[in-house]
């Protein structure tokens, strides 16, 4: 018996590459490698009992933000733009030693997050500026270019201490 050879039609695979490329390009475009960036903060430790620590007034820069987003620095109304200079002044001049300097930040429940973050940003800017100057003086390099160990070394002399007072319990002695 003779079997007829069946002719299998060849499917052209040439366009398969095109299809795959199309998909590939879609995924390439759709991939958004987003990098989040933000203000890094270490929250204060939680303590049940509200022990107040007595700190000498000259070592503290008290900043209060009310619900109208207005600033009160050391009991006087102030502008956001002054904050960085005030922070640096506290650390370098007012405080007994930079290690003892504390920024006390208190906000109202009605304060907008934007203002709060702007204030936090200014305080950090003050510290960053001082850290940068210090590392330029000691290592001749910018703070960002230093390795981790040197950074910690620089920070040790100018520790960033931001005390956040509970919004409900106002306890700042002027």
């Amino acid at each position: 018996m003779k079997t007829k050879k069946r002719v299998v039609p060849v499917v052209s695979a040439g366009s398969l590459a095109d299809v795959a490329f199309l998909l590939l390009i879609f995924f390439l475009v759709a991939t958004t490698i987003q990098t989040d960036s933000g203000l890094n903060v270490l929250l204060p430790a939680w303590t049940e009992d509200n022990t107040t620590q007595d700190v000498e007034n000259r070592n503290v820069l008290s900043i209060i933000i009310n619900s109208e987003n207005e600033l009160l620095v050391e009991g006087k109304q102030a502008q956001l733009s002054d904050l960085q200079a005030r922070t640096e002044q506290l650390i370098l001049k007012e405080a007994e030693s930079p290690k003892l300097a504390i920024v006390s930040l208190q906000n109202d429940n009605g304060t907008s997050y934007e203002t709060y973050l702007a204030v936090y940003n200014e305080i950090k800017a003050g510290y960053n500026h001082i850290w940068d100057n210090e590392s330029l003086r000691r290592f001749g390099q910018h703070y960002d270019d230093l390795d981790k160990r040197s950074q910690i070394d620089v920070r040790k002399n100018y520790p960033l201490v931001i005390s956040e007072v509970e919004p409900s319990s106002i306890a700042i002695s002027q």
Binding site: D36, S37, G38, L39, N40, V41, L42, L43, P44, A45, W46, N107, D108, N109, G110, T111, S112, Y113, E114, Y116, L117, Y120, N121, E166, P167
Partner: peptide, 29 residues
């Protein structure tokens, strides 16, 4: 956090995080 949000709700979150000693926070901006 949206910039228009009031601090009250943010403080609540912060308090909860502090209570469980999860203190490393980054405010995205």
């Amino acid at each position: 956090v949206d910039k228009g949000v009031k601090m009250g709700i943010v403080t609540d979150v912060k308090t909860e995080l502090r209570k469980i000693d999860f203190r490393k926070v980054s405010y995205l901006a």
